[in-house]
Simulated scan of single mutants.
Amino acid sequence: MTGHHDVHSDLHSEHGAHAGEHPGRASDPVIKVLDLAWLEFEKPDLDRAETFAHAFGFATAARTADELQLRGTDPGSPCVLVRRGARSRFVGPAFRAVDSADLLRLAAATGARAVPLPESLGGLTVDLVDPSRLRVRVVAETHELEALPTQRPHTFNFGHEVARVNAPQRPLRAPARVRRLGHVVIQSTKYRETLDWYLRNLGLIVSDFLYYPGQRQRGPVMSFIRCDQGSVPADHHTLALTLGPSNRYVHSAYQVADLDALAAGGEYLREQGYHRSWGIGRHIQGSQIFDYWRDPDGFMVEHFSDGDMFDSTLEPGWAPMTASGLAQWGPPITKDFLGIKPGAESLRELRSIVEALREDNEFDLRRLRGLLKVANS
């Protein structure tokens, strides 16, 4: 790689693929999912999980002794399902198919079965396992929750365009009301194989690829992937995959009304004693205004607003991965966000590096050098 690349020169990289590089989509996918439906976790303390969830901005959709369903204000499914477990862990995502016919097509292609979901959710699921050994549900015809009152975006005066007169702006320092689940980020030791699995089976398409500086010829190491809804714009990414020394959840993101809701909600979380991981800032890939937090079980969750929406015509952008290139503006990226803050998580990742280098996967010594270069960029 020659010359200096300005990581802040654009939002969606204007530099496309070179000849022979990954096209970012499958030519004939089995089905095309519509969106994420929900995420599933296990946690030992549902009361503690619910307390944080309300401070973060979720509403409780249902609660039993062994399960907590959390929702946003948009109609549809719950955003998050938390079941009681001996330890905290991410179980996997659920994607929404168009209908049960697509589920049957997926089941036939993968050798899986379409089975009923619990009555509290309704509908059917096909449960699969991706190459990273993550359980992936694809669901259809689930119960629909009605919309809840939502947090209205503020009215802004921009320059000489005056839309608000005799009406002071006073955002409440209160939980930012979550509207919906936006995306989940997964780390994989088999990034390329896992990427192709999602494109082929679920019909997802890539919005942006990132590669380690100096290693573009070895292929990308991260992809921001959206649902293919044809001419209907979809979130810049519903799923993001990144290469790493372990197969694990990285973070999940939930949309709120606007910057004021995000910032005031963050002040509320801080006052309740919760830990901000990184923020507030604006991303490059996806353009979202972001604010990252840690829940009491250590899971990273994100408030976001004002993200990019792409239709199916836009081809993938390509850019080098750097720590400074993750945001257009905002505070310096933190060691906590990168997973290198001294503590239990960084020790687990260090052990994972040693184990990964002994195994046959995509995370080899050269990829490790690329990752360390990113962390120090």
Results as ranks from 00 to 15, higher is better:
residue 30 V to F: 04
residue 31 I to T: 02
residue 37 A to Y: 03
residue 37 A to T: 03
residue 40 E to Q: 11
residue 44 P to A: 14
residue 46 L to Q: 02
residue 48 R to L: 06
residue 51 T to C: 02
residue 52 F to I: 00
residue 64 T to G: 15
residue 70 L to A: 05
residue 75 P to R: 11
residue 76 G to P: 09
residue 77 S to P: 12
residue 79 C to E: 12
residue 80 V to F: 04
residue 83 R to I: 13
residue 83 R to N: 10
residue 85 G to A: 08
residue 94 A to C: 14
residue 95 F to W: 12
residue 96 R to Y: 02
residue 100 S to N: 10
residue 106 L to Q: 07
residue 106 L to W: 06
residue 106 L to E: 09
residue 107 A to P: 13
residue 108 A to I: 05
residue 116 P to K: 15
residue 116 P to R: 13
residue 120 S to I: 10
residue 121 L to C: 03
residue 126 V to R: 00
residue 128 L to C: 02
residue 131 P to Y: 01
residue 138 V to M: 01
residue 139 V to S: 03
residue 139 V to F: 04
residue 146 E to Q: 15
residue 148 L to F: 04
residue 150 T to K: 14
residue 152 R to I: 11
residue 156 F to P: 02
residue 158 F to N: 10
residue 159 G to W: 11
residue 162 V to P: 07
residue 165 V to G: 05
residue 166 N to E: 13
residue 168 P to M: 06
residue 170 R to W: 14
residue 174 A to E: 09
residue 177 R to S: 14
residue 179 R to Q: 15
residue 183 H to G: 05
residue 190 K to G: 08
residue 192 R to W: 08
residue 193 E to A: 09
residue 200 R to F: 05
residue 201 N to T: 06
residue 204 L to F: 14
residue 207 S to K: 01
residue 208 D to Q: 08
residue 209 F to T: 03
residue 212 Y to T: 03
residue 213 P to L: 01
residue 214 G to Q: 04
residue 215 Q to F: 07
residue 218 R to Y: 07
residue 235 D to Y: 07
residue 241 L to N: 09
residue 248 R to E: 08
residue 254 Y to N: 04
residue 255 Q to K: 09
residue 256 V to H: 14
residue 262 L to N: 01
residue 270 R to P: 01
residue 273 G to E: 08
residue 275 H to W: 13
residue 279 G to F: 00
residue 283 H to P: 03
residue 291 D to Y: 04
residue 293 W to A: 02
residue 295 D to I: 06
residue 295 D to T: 09
residue 296 P to Y: 08
residue 299 F to K: 04
residue 308 D to S: 15
residue 315 E to L: 12
residue 323 A to E: 08
residue 326 L to P: 00
residue 326 L to G: 06
residue 327 A to L: 11
residue 327 A to P: 00
residue 330 G to K: 05
residue 336 D to K: 09
residue 340 I to C: 12
residue 341 K to N: 12
residue 344 A to V: 15
residue 347 L to Q: 15
residue 354 V to E: 03
residue 362 E to S: 06
residue 366 R to G: 15
residue 373 K to E: 13
residue 376 N to H: 15
